[in-house]
């Protein structure tokens, strides 16, 4: 009864990799997979973010809910998130959402005691879990900036003003609220395949070649200073704007260049907020997508109910 497999075997090539940014090529698959990965990275890979704030004292210029909102938007290191529970599924704290399996507690105490304005930043948040802390954006190789780096500003206090609060951070996904999205940007583009009709190109004068090359809003083509031939400098700069094709037609040279999007090759750019490493974000997205597919499998009772229906149907058709 098992059907033939129509499985594909995608290939990956990494071009650039930093903790917060990855650029890679994905080949031998289609746009639906590329887009599903993009959508999952943005909206369904979990992170940890502040979700509940109890304010003890707030004499700052910002109101309580304004501060609570700002706290929610601070990215927290979330390597733990995949293994954590969602508060709504947590049976260790039934609905309270404040146990160690599904939450992390933070405290913040700040008071300005002199005439200089005090910046209250993400670095003033004290975490109950050393693995879940506000993301540090200072460059570790740059000694001076890390000394001075003060994190993300939450509020500024003048003499006598005070902020004291307790915050609960929980696991969540971008679909629920954008504060949980680990992705700053995730984009992919089709790899362009550019063919210049060399014979036709040679029928152009150097002046015409220049005009044609310059008709592209991005620097895709250039003229070789020695041979005066038009060459493709960087096909990936092409934005599928069709300008060079229209220009060729206007010059009476249709078919001068042929540009096609390779339908099974994609170039991804993944930028993380810092909550998880960009490479881990991709891997987590694959895992989440697998889990989603697993969840949409037909349940045993659905199949059984249909089997009975099928027999009945066959009986009726036979009779």
């Amino acid at each position: 009864m098992d059907g033939v497999s129509y499985q594909r075997f995608p290939r990956v090539k990494i071009r650039e990799l930093r903790d917060d940014c990855a650029k890679f090529e994905l080949r031998d698959t289609d746009a639906s997979i590329a887009n599903a990965l993009r959508r999952v990275m943005i909206a369904e890979v979990p992170t940890i973010a502040i979700d509940l704030v109890e304010i003890e004292v707030n004499s700052s210029v910002l109101n309580d809910e304004f501060i609570a909102h700002r706290l929610g938007l601070i990215p927290l290191t979330s390597e733990r998130a995949m293994g954590m529970r969602f508060s709504r599924d947590c049976d260790a704290c039934d609905g309270d959402g404040q146990c160690e399996y599904c939450s992390v507690e933070f405290h913040l105490r700040a008071k300005c005691r002199d005439d200089q304005t005090l910046d209250v930043t993400s670095k003033d948040l004290v975490s109950s879990d050393h693995s879940v802390v506000p993301v540090d954006y200072s460059d570790p190789s740059d000694y001076e900036s890390s000394e001075q780096s003060r994190g993300i500003i939450i509020v500024k206090l003048r003499r006598g003003q005070e902020l004291r609060l307790r915050a609960i951070a929980r696991k969540g996904i971008g679909k629920d609220h954008a504060k949980w999205s680990p992705a700053a940007t995730v984009t992919f583009m089709y790899e362009p395949d550019i063919h210049i009709n060399e014979d036709m190109m040679e029928s152009l004068t150097i002046e015409e070649k220049k005009q044609w090359v310059e008709s592209s809003p991005t620097k895709v083509f250039d003229i070789d200073p020695v041979t005066q031939q038009v060459k493709v400098v960087d096909p990936e700069l092409y934005t599928y704007d069709d300008e060079v094709i229209k220009k060729a037609e206007a010059m009476g040279k249709p078919g001068l260049v042929e540009i096609r999007a390779k339908e099974d090759s994609f170039i991804f750019t993944v930028e993380s907020t810092g909550a998880i490493k960009a490479s881990q974000l991709v891997l987590n997205a694959i895992d989440i997508l697998k889990q989603k597919l697993d969840a949409v499998r037909l349940s045993e009772d659905t199949v059984e109910a249909d089997d009975q229906f099928g027999e009945l149907g066959a009986h009726m058709r036979g009779g």
């Binding site: 497999s5 594909r8 990956v12 997979i33 694959i286 597919l293 949409v296």
Partner: peptide, 23 residues
């Protein structure tokens, strides 16, 4: 329907392995 899910699941397994190896 089942076949499509199985094939996608295997494709993602393969993709994960390729990505880890490339990493």
């Amino acid at each position: 329907y089942n076949q499509a899910i199985n094939d996608l699941d295997k494709e993602l397994d393969h993709l994960k392995n390729s990505f880890e190896a490339e990493l």
